[in-house]
Structures are given as C-alpha cells and as structure tokens.
Amino acid sequence: MSAISIEGVRRTFGRVVAVDRIDLQIPAGSFCGLIGHNGAGKSTTLRMLMGLLHPTEGKVRICGHDVVAEPLEARKKLGAVPEEPAVYEYLTAREFLEFVAGVRGGGDVGKALEDTGLGADADRLLREYSQGMRRKTALAAAMLGRPPVLVLDEALNGLDPPSASAVKRALRAYVDEGNTVLLSTHVVETVAAVADRVVMLAHGRVVADERVADIGKDGLERLFLERIEATRAR
C-alpha cells in the first residue's frame, strides 16, 4: 500500500483545468519533491491531499484512507503545512504545539521546537512571529505525533539559511524513520538536496517522475527547463 496514492485525479475550476488526470503512487519511507512553474497545479494537488479541496474526478488516499470519504482517518495519518499556514495568534508557539499534540493524542513538543529551531522563542505569542517563524511553527505542528505522511506546500519558503538547513536535516531524519514526505517547491536545489524522487508538474500534468540520484542536481534543473519548454511548445 502506498503512503500517498493519487489515482486519475482531475480538478477543474469552471472551465480552467488545474490538475489533469494525475496518477501518482508514493511508497512509505520516501522523500518526494514536487516541482513546477507557477500555476502548474502543485498547490491544488497538495490541497486535495490535505482534504482542503475535493477532486472533480479520481481518488486521493493517505495510507489507504480516502481523503474525501474518510477525512478524519486520513488526517490522523497526515501532517500538513499549507501554503499559508494559520495559527492561533494569541497562543505562544509552545502552547500552540501543546494544543496540536493534544489533538493528535501525543507528541514531543520539546523535540519539535528543537528540530525547527524555535526553542528560544517558544514562549512568545505567535502574533509577534515573523512569516518564517510561523512557517517553522506550522512545520513543527505537522511533525508532532510523527504522522506517517507529511505534505508540505512551499514549507521552506521564507526560512533563513541556518533554519532551512536544520529543517532539511529534520525532514531527512523523519524520512529515515520510515515516514513519507511530499514537498512542493519552486527551488530545484532544495529538491536536489533532500529528495529521493522528483515529480514535475506542468499545466496540471505530470511531465517527469525521476529518481534524483539518477539525474543529479544539474540534470534536474536541465530536465525541469526542458520539460517546461516542451509543454509550452505543445
């Protein structure tokens, strides 16, 4: 059973086709990068995985649970950071993570704060946080309770280099425990640095699905540009 299963998923908004019959199986224990140009359908795909949008056609499953039909079961297996994560402004980061740990039925708040480098600011109100710190809080919340699947939409955006590096290490360790991470980003280097596999989207379709080790960082960038150009030409 795949950790993430996307079968024949199509999503339209009126006449606009945002995602056009995507099939994707991501096994447990893998780190998959999802890259694509602006408007390629990355966020729509991830929002469907998070249950925030329902597919027009097809099925989305997290650890075998249909996100639409079994929303609670799917969310129990899923940690998610949306593109614009929301937090309770009037809680401190520690309190917010304690709340999330309560919802998830447990989780090591101290470790989550440490992994994301928030320890020193853990007792400040979230309304005082910068965008990057909020993103790190959302990331820490997503990893709490170690759900087997993490879906992260541009989760490393806005992080300073030391934080980004620490978060990448934490995500790598997370995958090494047997969990699965799907990370969408515009930044090819990020995918090359952490992912085992890369899926490229263009105009709502999968245009490449490769092992990062097979193509290398330079190859990844070249492939990305080639496929985008090829799709545009069509």
Binding site: F13, G14, R15, V16, R47, G51, L52, L53, H54, V68, P71, L72, R75
Partner: peptide, 23 residues
C-alpha cells in the same frame, strides 16, 4: 458536525475559486 465539518473547507474553497474564476 462529524459528517460535514471537514467537507466545509472544500466547499468554501470551491466557492472562493468559482468567484475568482468568474468569466
């Protein structure tokens, strides 16, 4: 509430997207 609360997010997203994609 158990049946519909989560679905509410998808419905609202749909509504917002449709408003945004009005011709």
């Amino acid at each position: 509430a158990r049946r519909t609360w989560f679905a509410g997010s998808a419905v609202l997203a749909d509504i917002d997207a449709r408003y945004a994609s009005i011709e």
